[in-house]
């Protein structure tokens, strides 16, 4: 029984990391229709920002979270403004453009700070483990779980309870009609992309103390993030949350019973099969046409 609870908690932890990484992508993909292949590199930039703040400015991870969000968001804003907005309504071109941006970011980091693995310190206050339902769990993993849920909540509020969110939803439904009501679609898109990039940066900074920081760390995350978003259903924030935790429990469980290699294969296979029969994903946002 203990083992079962332990495994459920583990799955929640894996799921929360997936959610963290996928949230930014879900916003960008779901609302703007841009397949952002540079998402992994935004995650990587966030991790490097954490390293820079820690090594050169002596800031702890928790203190540097807000600046990291702002730095990576500014980066996303520049890329939306000067690359993607010039490719409006051409989704295939944005795939190529974001892929190219990703490669350039990777090489830029490699050339400027070198390709060795970097070290980001675990916040000392969270370096112990604590009891959850009688199971010993790393405090930092619990913290990640709380943060990912909080970020989801903030994003949901932003989308559904603020003027910017309302404008964005109007644009998603019909851009030209929204524009004729005086909504500045360009500005809203740039802000949305910046927000998504900032979330990715936060995710990178937050996972860096548990994993490692290297120029090509983004590659793995972008695959995970796309799996979560596609399984959950594009345009559905709640679907993203559900699918992150489903994937977390599934891969954690199979990894425990078999091993991680098998888990990876089975999870991918399951998604392929599911997409075959439910191309729109598990959850779809109902929009009046």
């Amino acid at each position: 029984m203990d083992q079962f609870i332990e495994q459920i908690v583990t799955g929640l932890s894996i799921g929360s990391i997936l959610l963290l990484v996928a949230l930014g992508l879900s916003i960008i993909y779901g609302s703007m229709g841009i397949i952002n292949l540079a998402h992994g590199e935004f995650v990587m930039l966030g991790a490097y920002a954490a390293w820079v703040f820690h090594t050169y400015l002596g800031l702890g991870l928790l203190a540097s979270l807000v600046p990291i969000f702002l730095v990576v968001a500014a980066f996303g804003w520049i890329i939306e403004r000067y690359v993607l907005s010039l490719l409006n309504n051409r989704p295939l071109d944005t795939i190529l453009a974001t892929w190219g941006v990703g490669i350039m970011l990777q090489q830029a980091v490699r050339l400027s700070v070198g390709s060795e693995l970097r070290y980001v310190q675990l916040p000392p206050a969270l370096s112990d483990s604590m009891d959850v339902f009688g199971i010993s769990v790393s405090s930092y993993r619990v913290f990640l779980f709380v943060v990912s849920i909080a970020l989801f909540g903030a994003t949901w509020l932003l989308m559904n309870r603020t003027p910017v969110g309302m404008k964005l939803r109007a644009i998603i439904q019909d851009r030209s009609v929204a524009a004729s009501f005086g909504i500045n679609a360009k500005r809203v898109y740039a802000l949305t992309f910046a927000y998504g990039a900032g979330l990715a940066g936060l995710a990178g900074a937050l996972v860096s103390p548990l994993k490692s920081v290297s120029p090509d760390m983004g590659t793995g995350y972008v695959v995970d993030a796309f799996m979560v978003v596609v399984l959950g259903g594009v345009q559905s924030l709640a679907g993203t949350v559900a699918s992150a935790f489903i994937l977390g429990e599934l891969s954690g469980g199979i990894a425990f019973l078999q091993n991680d290699t098998v888990a990876k294969a089975i999870v991918l296979l399951a998604i392929v099969v599911l997409i075959r029969f439910r191309p729109e994903g598990l959850f779809t946002a109902r929009v009046r046409a």
Partner: peptide, 20 residues
């Protein structure tokens, strides 16, 4: 005896197995 994919970075299930 267990093998993880190259570049793997999520070891919580492995750690549960080590515990058990």
């Amino acid at each position: 005896e267990e093998y993880v994919p190259l570049g793997h970075s999520e070891f919580s299930s492995v750690i549960n197995k080590i515990r058990s």
